[in-house]
Each structure stands twice: as structure tokens, then as C-alpha cells.
């Protein structure tokens, strides 16, 4: 075990875990933030997506010891105008079904809009194909990203 001071959503969380522990479990079991989900553990499904220094990362596959003093952002800490537009569009179109993958979907969608305010369908495919939704809400995810882009335009 080792002590890590993780900067998550602007706050420092002391977590005492084995250095090999994936960031995901340090966030969930250590810091007690449960919006970031476990779906596969092998960077296949994207349910665990967070930002580390602004970059999207699969937190299930990043050891906590590699995070250092980087800023971690989880779904609970999303507050940019892009994020708000995405969340609003998600609700407006009733995107979620079971909802379990949606934290990761929203993290990826927000990251896309941060980089590309007017994504095409192809851009959406490339940015979002690392996020599996077993309920297959993909039609609405696509529509909601376009919807969010539109609200950010105006």
C-alpha cells in the first residue's frame, strides 16, 4: 500500500492503495466518486473515461502511481459550457436507457466538442467508437452531440 494525493475535480483526495491499482478504483473505492464506471477493465468499453490534464483516459488501465500531480476530472467535476450543453442535449433527447455507460459517453462527447465545435458524423464515429453502449443508444448519442454543437454555436 502507498499513499497518493490525487487531485480530482480541483480537490485533493488522499487514497491509500497499492501503486498498481488502476486510477478507476482509486477514484471509486478510494475517493468515493462513483460516477465513473467499471465495464470491462481492459480499455475496451470506455465506461471509465476521465480526463487527466484534460486528455481523455481509460482510468481502468492507468495505474494510480502514474497519475502523479496531474489534474483528474470525472463526470462529477464537469462544468464547462461544452459539458453543460452535452448534458442538456442528453436530457432533451432522453438518450440514456440503463445509463451505466453514459458518464463515459458524456466525457468523450464533451472532449470531442472541446476540440471540434462542429463535428461531422464521421468525426463523431471516430471520437465515440471507444465507448460501448450495450443498450445501443447510439442514434440518440449522435443526435445529442449534433444538438449540443448547435446550442454552442448560438
Amino acid at each position: 500500500m502507498a499513499a497518493f494525493a490525487l487531485k480530482i475535480n480541483g480537490q485533493t483526495h488522499q487514497v491509500d492503495v497499492d501503486p498498481s491499482t488502476p486510477l478507476l478504483w482509486a477514484i471509486r473505492d478510494g475517493a468515493g466518486l462513483t460516477g465513473t464506471k467499471y465495464g470491462c477493465g481492459v480499455a475496451q468499453c470506455g465506461a471509465c473515461t476521465v480526463y487527466v490534464d484534460g486528455q481523455t483516459v481509460r482510468s481502468c488501465s492507468l495505474p494510480v502511481s502514474a497519475v502523479g500531480s496531474s489534474e483528474v476530472t470525472t463526470i462529477e467535476g464537469l462544468d464547462s459550457k461544452e459539458a453543460k450543453a452535452v448534458q442538456k442535449a442528453w436530457v432533451a433527447l432522453d438518450v440514456p436507457q440503463c445509463g451505466y455507460c453514459q458518464s463515459g459517453q458524456i466525457m468523450s462527447a464533451t472532449a470531442l466538442l472541446n476540440l471540434n465545435p462542429a463535428p461531422t458524423d464521421r468525426d463523431i464515429d471516430l471520437a465515440m467508437n471507444g465507448n460501448i453502449c450495450r443498450c445501443a443508444t447510439y442514434v440518440r448519442i449522435r443526435a445529442a452531440i449534433h444538438g449540443a454543437a448547435k446550442t454552442l454555436e448560438g
Binding site: 465513473t36 462529477e76 448534458q87 440514456p96 445509463g99 453514459q102
Partner: peptide, 9 residues
């Protein structure tokens, strides 16, 4: 249930 499923709650 949409709102709680978009903000991690």
C-alpha cells in the same frame, strides 16, 4: 431518470 444518468448521480 435521464438527468441522474447524465451527471453521474
Amino acid at each position: 431518470d435521464s438527468a441522474d444518468k447524465t451527471d453521474g448521480k
